[in-house]
Simulated assay, not measured.
Amino acid sequence: MARAPVGGPGPGWWAACGLAVAVLWLHPLLLHAQPSAATKNMCGKPAVTGKIFGGKNSPDLRWPWQASLLYRGRHTCGATLIDVFWVISAAHCFQKSHEPSDYKILLGYHKLQHPTEHSLQMTVNRIIVHSDFNRRHFMGSDIALLQLHLSVNFTSHILPACLPEPTTDLPSHTSCWITGWGMVTEDGEQGPSSSDSMPF
């Protein structure tokens, strides 16, 4: 598991800001499923603090909202837990199928191939892909929501990320963190053990 900070213009920075804007756009879709009191009190509070730069492995508990999206049993994309029933991911991850039964969500994993007593595998009830995905420009509006069949019980290893308020304004050059599974550099190839870690 690893992460890296992103600050200033560049491919990673634009992707992060694009995701933030897309989350703000999708926020009205979540209004009918208001975050529970538990979500509001627990979101965005990992048990471990500190910073690692350059796409290195991160410690257990650092990103308790990081999830893995499985397509027919194989890891295909990263995802983020945002509420007891909701996970967010990228729309391009669903180009092969929009059938919820083809997907599962892994939560509480620090290494994909090594589940622990804290790990969960959840089934998907519904997939909502942004209606403008790929319509106006290539990979535009690249965001999707997944509704889980069952609610998630939050633990020290499984907590939601905080959603911004609809009125949130992101100033230019705001620093942020990006987490995921796979490559540790922007143009690098996945190594043989990359599926076992959560790199930047």
Rank of each mutant, 00 (worst) to 15 (best):
T123G: 09
P11W: 06
C77W: 08
H130F: 06
D132I: 02
S175H: 10
D83I: 00
D83Q: 00
D83A: 00
Q66M: 08
S156N: 15
D142F: 06
H98T: 13
I158H: 03
D132G: 08
E165L: 04
D60H: 02
I127L: 00
E99F: 03
G188P: 11
W25P: 00
A90D: 11
S89K: 00
A33E: 06
G191D: 08
C43Q: 08
S197N: 10
Q190W: 01
G108A: 07
A2D: 09
I82P: 05
P100V: 00
P166K: 12
Q34H: 07
Y109A: 11
D169Q: 12
H75C: 05
T123L: 07
F154Q: 04
V124F: 01
R72L: 14
T123M: 07
R62H: 06
A67T: 02
W177Q: 11
M122P: 06
V87A: 09
L112E: 00
W181F: 09
A144T: 09
L145W: 02
G140F: 08
M42Q: 12
S197I: 08
V124H: 04
P164K: 10
F53E: 12
K51R: 14
Q147D: 06
L120W: 03
A67D: 03
H98M: 10
I127M: 00
F85W: 12
V21I: 03
T49M: 11
P11I: 10
A91R: 00
W13Q: 09
P199E: 10
S36W: 03
W65M: 05
W13I: 04
L24R: 15
P192Q: 10
F154N: 06
L24Y: 10
S151T: 06
S131G: 11
E165W: 02
S175V: 09
G140D: 14
P166E: 12
L112D: 01
F200Y: 11
T174P: 02
T174S: 12
G140P: 08
H32E: 14
S194K: 03
A22R: 01
M122W: 04
V129S: 06
R126L: 00
W13D: 15
H110S: 04
A22Q: 05
L24P: 06
Y103S: 06
G188Y: 14
R72M: 14
R74F: 13
K56F: 09
G108M: 07
P100M: 01
A2R: 09
L31P: 00
H118I: 03
P35M: 00
K104Y: 05
S141R: 07
G188N: 11
V23M: 10
L81R: 01
